[in-house]
Simulated scan of single mutants.
Amino acid sequence: MNKDIATPIRTRAILEKYGFSFKKSLGQNFLIDPNILKRIVDHADITKETGTIEIGPGIGALTEHLARSSKKVVAFEIDQRLLPILKETLSPYDNVEIIHQDVLKANVKAVMDEKFTDISDVMVVANLPYYVTTPIIMKLLEEKLPIRGIVVMLQKEVAERISAQPGTKDYGSLSIAIQYYTTAEVVMTVPKTVFVPQPNVDSAIIRLTRRDKPAVEMKDEAFFFQVIKASFAQRRKTILNNLTNQLPLGKEKKDLIVLALEAAEIDPGRRGETLSIQEYARLSDELLPHFKSEA
C-alpha cells in the first residue's frame, strides 16, 4: 500500500516541494491524521461498487482513502495551484478524476451521468471549506441528485445546527431544510489539532442519508420554506409576531394568520423553534390560500 499523504511529515514535504501557501479565502485546512480519514470513509459505507464525489480534495489526503475503497472518485477542486500536486500525489490511483471547477457552479448531475455510467451507488464525501458548507449541501439536496447520502466534515457548530431537534437552541431553518431531504446525525467530532493550518474551531463529521421522499408533504414547497424562513426571522418573537411582520401584507392579514394557526392546531404564542417539520407543513397549507398570490 502507498504511504499515506495525511501525515504531518509527508504533508509538509509536499507543501514545501511545491511552495504551496494556504489561501484563507478558500478556507483551506488539510487533515494530517490518517486514522480520522479512515473513519470518515467507514462512516460513508463505501464499497467497490460505489462512486464517490469529493469537494475540495486539497493535496489528496482524503481522496486516496476514497480511491482505495471506491470504484471511482470524482473530485471538484477550485484552486488551480493544487492540480499539479494532486496529479503527483494521486498518481498511484487510476480510479480518480479531478475536475477543476467550483462545485457551486458545476452541473453535478451531468458530471455523474458522464463519469458514473455503470455505477448506481453514489456518495458525497468531503472535508468542506467552512465558509461554503451550507450552500454546497443545499445545492446537492435541492438538485435532488441520485445520491445515497453525504458524509462531510464541517464546523462542529454547523453540524449541531443541521442535526438539531425542535425546542433546542440550535434548531432553525437550516435544521428543517436539511432534515426535509435527509436524516441527519453527527457521527464524530474532530479536534482542531489534526489540521494544518489549525482552524479556530473544532469540527464534526455529519452523515446525511437521503430520504426516499421528503419528510413531509405539503401543497407548495416554495411557500413552505418561505413560512419557515419568516418564522425564524427573529428568534425571540412568537410565531404570530414573525409571520405578521415577515409575510407579504402580513399586518393586514393578521386575523387570517391567527385563523390559520388555529386550524393547524398551533398556539400563536409559541416560538418558531418549537415547531416540528410536520407542524410547519400543516401551517403552510393553512396559510397558502391567503398568501398564494403574494408568495
Rank of each mutant, 00 (worst) to 15 (best):
K3L: 13
K3R: 07
D4Y: 03
A6R: 00
P8S: 04
R10N: 15
E16N: 06
G19E: 08
K23C: 15
N35F: 13
R39M: 13
R39K: 11
H43D: 15
G51C: 09
I53E: 07
G58F: 03
G60R: 01
A61N: 11
T63N: 05
E64T: 07
Q80C: 09
L86G: 01
P92V: 00
Y93S: 13
E97K: 13
V103Q: 01
K105P: 06
V108L: 02
M112N: 06
D113S: 11
E114W: 12
K115F: 08
M123K: 11
V132I: 15
T134P: 09
M138N: 07
L140F: 13
E142H: 05
K144F: 08
R148D: 15
V152K: 02
L154I: 14
Q155C: 10
K156L: 11
T182P: 14
V186S: 03
V196M: 09
Q198R: 07
P199L: 04
N200G: 15
R207N: 10
R207K: 11
T209R: 09
D212V: 08
K213L: 12
K219V: 08
Q226N: 04
A230D: 03
R235A: 11
N241K: 01
N241C: 04
L247D: 06
G250E: 05
K251H: 09
K254I: 10
S284Y: 00
L288E: 10
F291Y: 04
